[in-house]
Simulated assay, not measured.
Amino acid sequence: MNTFAKSLLSILVVEDHPFSREAFVSMLKRTGFENVKAAEDGESAVAILNTDPIDLVITDINMPNQNGIELIKKIRTSQTKSSQYTSIIAVTTLSDAATISACMTLEVDAFLVKPISVKEAQQKILLAISEPKELYQQHLYADISTEISLSPKNLQPETKQPRIKEVSCHFFIPATLSELKSEMTILDDIELSNGSCLLKAGTLINQKLLRRLYELSEVVQFGHIRVRVDQKDTVT
């Protein structure tokens, strides 16, 4: 399928606020997306995913009954009849560090930041459905907490985890985000601007994580992050 054949793309919008849900669906249809379904929470979304073919899920996170993280986790761990590789866009305000971190680990295909504009929505839909159908972190999915807390304590820095000891191989401190490459291992936590952990030390960087980091660049604190490059990757 053409990656941006609007009339052929099946989209599921998951949003608990009726006005926001109807407005977003209406906006998508006005811009040429003809096959758009809607659900009021994760439970309703799962019911649709179990009966209808869906190419892209655009989900809010903070919802009753079953929140967005629970829904994303169910899709990624094959607890629905939809493919675990289904494209997913997480709708967020970028204010909840734990939620953003969970979405990163569950390998969402794009972040859509509220308030949502037509241009931004179309750009992120194109980005999401263009992502290669690959998952790199399936071994981490089971450990993802689906609890959501929007209280102020969630915005405080997390307790620092012990830094990984330096290893006897090539490592350096990248000056900019652009110097991070796939197959590098970060040796220090990558944090959000409020000090909360986004990616833990020891994470192996892949292309999907890199693209999400670029999307979140305005709220990512990047500096003095040690990176390990395995010797096999430095041989010319």
Rank of each mutant, 00 (worst) to 15 (best):
N2C: 01
F4T: 10
K6E: 07
L8G: 05
V14M: 10
P18R: 00
S20I: 13
S20N: 11
A23T: 04
A23R: 05
F24H: 06
M27K: 08
K29G: 01
G32P: 04
F33P: 02
E34I: 07
A38H: 10
D41V: 07
E43T: 15
S44M: 14
V46E: 08
A47E: 11
P53M: 01
L56V: 08
V57N: 00
I58P: 02
I58S: 02
T59C: 07
T59Y: 05
T59P: 04
D60P: 01
N62F: 02
M63S: 00
M63L: 04
P64N: 03
P64Q: 08
Q66D: 03
Q66V: 03
N67T: 11
G68N: 02
I69K: 06
I72P: 06
K73C: 01
I75L: 12
T77C: 00
Q79A: 09
T80I: 09
K81M: 07
S82M: 12
S82P: 00
S82W: 04
Q84C: 01
Y85G: 00
S87G: 13
I89Y: 02
T93W: 02
T93A: 11
S95E: 14
D96P: 00
D96L: 07
I100L: 15
S101T: 11
M104R: 00
M104I: 13
E107I: 01
A110L: 02
A110C: 06
V118D: 13
E120K: 13
A121Y: 03
Q122N: 11
K124E: 14
L126K: 15
L126A: 14
L127D: 02
I129R: 05
I129W: 00
E134T: 13
E134W: 10
L135C: 03
Y136T: 12
Y136I: 08
H139C: 04
H139M: 12
L140A: 08
A142T: 07
I144V: 14
E147M: 15
I148F: 12
I148E: 07
I148Y: 03
S149F: 09
L150Q: 09
L155G: 09
K160E: 07
C169F: 08
H170L: 10
H170I: 08
E179C: 06
K181V: 03
S182D: 07
S182P: 03
E183M: 13
M184S: 04
M184N: 09
D188F: 03
D188K: 06
D188Y: 02
D189K: 06
S193V: 13
G195W: 05
S196M: 01
L198R: 04
L199P: 06
K200H: 13
G202H: 10
L204Y: 04
K208M: 12
L209Q: 11
R212K: 10
R212W: 00
R212M: 12
L213N: 02
E215K: 13
E215V: 07
V219S: 06
V219A: 12
V220F: 03
V220Y: 09
Q221V: 00
G223A: 15
R226Q: 13
R226V: 08
D230E: 14
K232H: 11
D233Q: 10
D233C: 13
T234C: 15
V235C: 11
V235L: 14
